[in-house]
Design a protein around this nucleic acid. Structure first.
Lengths: 266, 266
DNA sequence: CAAGAATTGACGGATATTGCACATTTCCTT
DNA sequence: AAGGAAATGTGCAATATCCGTCAATTCTTG
């Protein structure tokens, strides 16, 4: 039994049952507990799993953002994929030719890339996958901020420098969110919040892309109050009360038609 | 059993099960472990697999290379790929654990990524493909400078800001080049020259990775004079006169063995 | 047929990995 | 809150693996 083979079996076991104990792995791999611990330590260092007392558990690794090489249509599995595409397309249509825009990380904003393919724009994005896709497919000028690339969130973020961001100014910024409530636009990840808040200051207009599944009450970090948004693009399945709430806060709401056939099974 | 036949069987076994042990291959091929190791070494030099302690594992990264890589990038990858792999591996071995290093863009430096996969490093790179590969495969902390992403060269470059670069300092910087002559390290692209010269200032030691095909007299832009280099890693096909020239300029020269039969490189 | 080159197998020092023992921490029960 | 049991990390010895070098064999070539 070899190291890599053990790793393969460990990952298989951990993804299968979500949690595996050291004792189970001892039995499966026929090695000493010390070796199991060492393996788990290495796998954790590579981000393949998370260690817990007595064993290991799977990491919710299905990254929200796509890796460079993956097909963007993994999103087909995700909820409201059709609506997100429609929203992204509508958002892309808002860009004037030759404009400078900011695109934040997120699954919905990622879908804008294909609709910006032939557009002549100047695009600042802190999302690594979006930058990669724009370079690969688009013809726009792509600018990224400097900083560390965070693996899980797939964004570039610098804790101190403002760098490029400080000398960039965009007419529009497009951003996604985890949820949208009267308390504001919500995000779960503090890393993303920091990135987004910094970028928001550099745009004249802030445009949020949120499909109708995002109109739920949820806890989390407040990214910004509603009144800092200029436009919200969503689909027509969004609850009317929420739309009214947005409008009364002075936000322009753009509705794209929702697909009827999209059952809420997934 | 011919050498080629063994190689075919090895690759088959490795792609089949993802990992193969030396013992398995001994049994399959009916040869001594020494021969198996030699075969694995050659196959690794061609990038067909990755050696691990006790055996070898499949390398699956070609899809990503194609997506992110541009034409000139892809084309250059094929020439002297065995030597480039060996040079890249040797370069990766120079990194102390936990160190901060800079990796410049280029085909040879790109190959360092797979040998840095499990290393615990802090890596600043202006090369977009290298950053992408490191995030995807590695566990190192990846830092990129801010700026525009140039499509053809696949590097991030900012004309004015020093940004992150100014507050980074590395023990070693690894760089490729178009050619190396008594006049200095040569590059053809002014965009790359600017990027590299700026990064060079931020490293204690500058290490050039140049395979033997780069020792030709050629015109171009002088990236830096020879004496600014600390180490040059090349293969043993490099002309002796050039090696002497480097040594007399005070440059440490590291030679990696060159493959004799380069015919099978594809 | 003979000489030369390439390939293969074997030996020894260096390196990496594994298992065990023990001090320390963490978790659970009382 | 306190005690005990389980779990964890680490040093150390044993084992296995890796790399370079050298002799023996096989293959090629003149």
């Amino acid at each position: 039994m070899h190291e890599r083979e053990r790793w393969r079996l460990i990952l298989e076991a951990v993804t299968q049952g979500r949690v595996v104990t050291i004792h189970d792995l001892e039995r499966i791999l026929q090695v000493s507990p010390a070796t199991v611990r060492r393996d788990l330590r290495r796998l954790e260092a590579n981000g393949k799993l998370r260690r817990v007392h007595g064993g290991a558990e799977a990491v919710d690794s299905d990254k929200k953002h796509n890796l460079i090489g993956q097909e963007p249509f993994e999103h087909a599995r995700l909820k409201n994929s059709q609506e997100k595409h429609a929203i992204a397309k509508r958002a892309a249509a808002l860009c004037d030719d030759g404009a400078s825009i900011i695109i934040d990380g997120g699954t919905t904003t990622y879908m804008m890339v294909e609709y910006l393919r032939d557009r002549n724009l100047q695009i600042l994005t802190s999302s690594f996958p979006i930058a990669a896709a724009l370079i690969d497919q688009g013809k726009a000028r792509v600018i990224v901020p400097g900083g560390e690339v965070y693996r899980q969130q797939q964004v570039i973020l610098s804790p101190f420098h403002d760098g490029i961001i400080g000398s960039f100014f965009a007419t529009k910024m497009f951003m996604g969110a985890q949820a949208i409530t009267p308390a504001g636009l919500m995000q779960t990840d503090p890393v993303l919040v920091q990135s987004e808040q910094r970028l928001m200051k550099r745009a004249e207009q802030v445009i949020a892309l949120v499909d109708s599944s995002k109109f739920v009450q949820t806890g989390g970090l407040i990214l910004c109050p509603i009144n800092e948004l200029d436009i919200v693009i969503t689909d027509s399945n969004a609850p009317k009360s929420a739309i009214d709430m947005l409008k009364s806060a002075g936000v322009e709401v753009i509705l794209v038609p929702a697909s009827q056939s999209n059952a809420e099974a997934a």
